[in-house]
Computed example of a mutant assay.
Amino acid sequence: MNQPSDPTDIPERLLGRAAGTLDPEERRVVDSMAARRPISLDIGEEAENRATFWDRLADRVAAVGGSWAFIFTFLGVLVGWMILNTGILGRLGEAFDPYPYIFLNLMLSMVAALQAPVIMMSQNRQATKDRLAASHDYEVNLRAELEIMRLHEKIDALRIEHLEAMTHMQGEVITVLHNNSISSTAD
């Protein structure tokens, strides 16, 4: 049987390029094919393994800060602050932050000033995770394409072998028929 070439010539045969000119993703795909090992991996787990303490903290802060629970809790604190300073302590003349709520505005500005960069860090980390996932998707797709091309090569080789065997058998049948026709005309 005509065997398709060995897996070490995959870059040249299937990609039309020398192994030294491959991108890192393409190199990983070719290496995994040559080693006959899967290329799939859990991107979430991979990203989590790469994450630092600060990355995970930013993700948690962004998850809390971007939730309805946070919004309703914060709204409750704001309304409570206003009721306390205007309604309860204001009537007693003991309000520590009366109506324009200057101290409350300062606190809100500080929360926003701290929360915004943390949320941006989390978004940057998510973007990095998305790029990692896209790169991995490319590798998996490339691997699938190359494997399909290799299967086509194998099927083509089997077809050629089958056709050669049929041609050989047809030649033998023709020879037998020719010999039978010669022997029958001689009788």
Rank of each mutant, 00 (worst) to 15 (best):
A165C: 00
E145Q: 11
A95R: 00
L75A: 04
E139R: 08
Y138I: 12
T185I: 13
H178M: 13
A113H: 03
H162I: 12
L114I: 10
E161Y: 02
D9H: 11
E172D: 14
E172G: 02
L158T: 09
H168E: 14
L163K: 12
A116P: 00
E145H: 11
L151M: 15
R13G: 02
M120D: 09
M166R: 13
H178Q: 14
N179V: 05
Q123I: 07
A62T: 09
N105K: 13
N49L: 11
E139L: 06
T175E: 11
I148G: 12
A127H: 07
A58D: 08
E46L: 06
E147M: 00
T167K: 11
R50E: 09
H152A: 09
A127T: 13
E172T: 12
R37T: 08
E12S: 07
Q3I: 08
E25L: 07
D97C: 04
A144K: 13
P7H: 02
D9M: 07
F96W: 13
S122E: 06
D55F: 04
A144H: 03
Y99H: 05
S184A: 08
A165Q: 15
Q126C: 02
V176W: 06
Q170Y: 06
D97A: 04
A112H: 03
H162D: 12
Y138H: 12
A113S: 06
A18N: 12
R50P: 07
S32E: 03
A157T: 10
V118Q: 02
D187H: 04
P11K: 12
N105G: 06
A144P: 00
D23W: 02
R36H: 06
L84S: 00
H162R: 15
H136P: 01
